[in-house]
Computed example of a mutant assay.
Amino acid sequence: SRYPGAMVRTDSLIVQDDGVTTTAAFTAALDLATALVREHLGDNIARTTARITLAPENRTSQSPYIVDSMLPVNHTQFADDVGSWLVERMAEPYDLDLLSDAFHLSTRTMLRKFKDETGESPRSYLQRARIRKAKRLLESTDWSLGKILGHIGYQDPGTFRRLFTDRVGISPADYRKRFRNGGTG
């Protein structure tokens, strides 16, 4: 709010703008150092430096580290109620007609009102909730991906893997390896 002209890019580890380079969290300073070495000295030196410092040389996104529940939310009661309804029925197939009927709205009104209040569609909200739940299950259980998919309402592992990788920045298997029971990745 102090800098209304600033645009935050939550998915980027390093942002360069008009000669200013910034980074995200504490450990992202390693990514910043690697990026600066790459920019000024080239890929080979950056790769060697990363190996010497034991820093990951190829991290390009902070998406796997984002904790959705810590992000600010400015929803109305309506949006919160719709979100809760969707999460409670997460394992069931998404059905816009059923959702709209539950809130006594037309599908068009449901889509418009929910998007106006949240900036996304109910389907997109549900996908984020499913991915958030899958992340928790990958971290805390030994369940197979198939069992997790059944629990969160996905049928096709390929579709889910693509969606998860697009949203999180790494595959479900890589996510589990990195974050399982506090893994250090």
Rank of each mutant, 00 (worst) to 15 (best):
G83W: 10
F103H: 08
S1F: 05
V20I: 13
K177V: 12
T22Q: 01
N58C: 09
Y65A: 13
K135C: 07
H151I: 00
I14H: 01
T34V: 15
D166T: 08
D116R: 12
A35W: 11
G5F: 03
V15K: 06
A79L: 04
G150R: 14
T48N: 14
Q127C: 00
R161S: 12
D166H: 05
A6F: 06
P93N: 07
E57N: 12
R167N: 14
R136V: 00
I52W: 12
H104A: 14
T34L: 15
S63G: 02
A33G: 06
N74Q: 08
P72C: 04
I45A: 14
V15E: 08
P56K: 12
T49L: 13
S1L: 04
L111Y: 02
T184F: 09
S144I: 10
D18L: 03
G42V: 10
R59C: 08
T109V: 07
L137T: 10
A33D: 01
T60D: 11
T49F: 15
E117P: 01
I148T: 05
L145T: 03
L54I: 13
G19P: 02
T22I: 02
L99H: 01
R136Y: 05
G169A: 06
S144E: 13
E92Q: 12
K147S: 09
E88T: 09
L13I: 13
P56H: 15
E139I: 02
R180H: 15
L41H: 14
T34S: 13
L41Q: 14
P172M: 09
R130H: 07
I148K: 03
V82L: 14
Q77L: 14
R162L: 11
I148F: 02
